[in-house]
Amino acid sequence: MDTEPQHSERDPSSTPATGKEEGSRSVRMPGLPEFLRDLSWRRAAVLGVLGTASLLLFSAFVVQPFLIPSGSMEPGLQVGDRVLVNKLAYRFGTEPRRGDVVVFDGTGSFVQEPAPENPLTGLAHGAAAALGLAEPAETDFVKRVVGVGGDRVVCCDEGGKVEVNGRAIEERYVYFGDAPSSAPFDIVVPSGTLWVMGDHRSNSRDSRDHLGEPGGGTVPVDKVIGRVDWIGWPLGRWTSLEPTDAFRDVRDPDGAHG
C-alpha cells in the first residue's frame, strides 16, 4: 500500500478567511495604529479641557474650593483645609448674617489695590486657586461676621465679652484660651458693610486692625464672595459648618430680632 502523503495544489481562491489574512490586509494600511493612538490622546485632551472648563464655571458661579492659608480661623478651620464656598448663598437678595463664616475680597478695606502682575501668571494662579489647588489671592480673606449694618459692636463688657447691640455674645467658637479681643473697640457698623473677626483672635488680622483706615475696618457686603458651608478636604475632616447660635438673642437696632 502506498503510504506516501499525497500532495496537491490548492486553489488560492479557496483559501478561507483567517486572522493571518486579515493581518496581511492591515499591513496595507500603514499608520493606522498611530492614528488611533493620536485620536485617543486628542479625545482625552478634549475631555480634559471640557472637564476643567466645567469645573471653573461651576467654581465661578456655584461652589468654589478655597484653601485655608493661615490659622486665623482655628479651631474650626485648620491650615491646609479646603473649604467649599457657597456662592449662591447671597445671590438672591439674602445678605450675610451674624455668625456666618464668609470669604471676601479685602481690596479697599483690608488691603490696598494690588500691584499689577503678569496676566498669564495671574490667570494660571487664579485658575489653580479657583480649583482649590493653590493659595487664594492675597486680597481674599475668610472671617466670621460679628456685626452687620447698623449694629453697635463693643469690646469688651464687664465680663470681657463682645457686645452686639447691648447683648453679650457667648463665642464658643473662639480659639481656646484666647480673649474675645485684646484691643478695645466701639463701632457702629455702617449700612451695607460688615464687621468681621477671626476665631483665633490672637492670630487674626481682621476688622480690629483696620479701624483707622478707609472704611474703618468694615467690609462692603458686595465684596463678599460667598459663605463657607463645608470642609471638603482632607477627607478625614469632611463636614458641614453648623451655624452658630451665639447671636440668636441679639436684636437689630430697631428692636427686632436679627
Rank of each mutant, 00 (worst) to 15 (best):
V219T: 09
T18A: 03
S204V: 08
S182D: 13
L194Y: 11
L77D: 01
G236T: 14
G106Q: 06
H257Q: 08
S40C: 05
K161V: 04
D178E: 01
G76C: 00
L56M: 09
I68E: 06
P119Y: 02
S109T: 14
A124R: 15
A53K: 04
G258M: 02
D199P: 11
A179R: 13
G192I: 11
L84D: 03
G51V: 05
G80L: 12
G80Y: 10
A60F: 04
A89W: 02
L39P: 00
W41R: 13
L55Q: 07
T239C: 07
S202C: 00
W195L: 11
P33I: 09
V83E: 04
G255A: 03
L133V: 07
N165A: 01
W233Q: 11
S59E: 01
A168G: 06
D249H: 10
F92E: 09
P75V: 11
D38I: 07
Q64V: 07
A130W: 05
T244H: 07
V219M: 12
P65Y: 08
T107Q: 11
V196A: 06
A115C: 03
L39Q: 12
G122F: 00
E21P: 00
R91P: 01
V83R: 04
F104I: 08
R43N: 04
G31P: 11
S181Q: 07
S207K: 07
P253G: 05
E34R: 12
S54A: 15
A115L: 13
D249P: 02
V103H: 08
G212V: 03
V250A: 00
F110H: 07
H200K: 06
P253A: 10
E117P: 01
S14C: 08
Y173H: 13
S54N: 02
T121D: 13
A179M: 09
E170R: 14
V154E: 07
P214N: 05
R25C: 03
V196N: 01
C156Q: 09
L67S: 06
I169E: 02
W238I: 15
T3H: 11
P16V: 09
G216A: 09
D209K: 06
E138R: 14
L39E: 09
P116H: 00
T121K: 12
P234A: 03
S8Y: 12
V79S: 01
L88A: 13
T107I: 14
G217D: 05
D105V: 07
S26I: 07
G232V: 07
D81T: 10
D222W: 09
P12E: 10
L241R: 06
V102S: 06
A183R: 15
L194Q: 08
L84T: 02
F110R: 02
S40K: 12
V142R: 05
V27M: 06
P30V: 10
W233F: 15
T239R: 15
G48E: 05
T3W: 08
Q112K: 11
H210Y: 14
R152M: 03
E135C: 00
D222I: 09
M29R: 15
L235K: 13
H257Y: 11
F110G: 04
F92L: 15
V188C: 08
E113L: 14
D151E: 02
A127V: 15
G216H: 08
L120G: 00
F92H: 12
T121S: 12
G71V: 04
K87Y: 04
R98S: 10
H7G: 03
H210T: 00
P33Q: 04
F58L: 13
S24K: 15
R201Y: 04
G108K: 10
A168V: 08
I225R: 14
W238N: 01
R152H: 15
D81G: 06
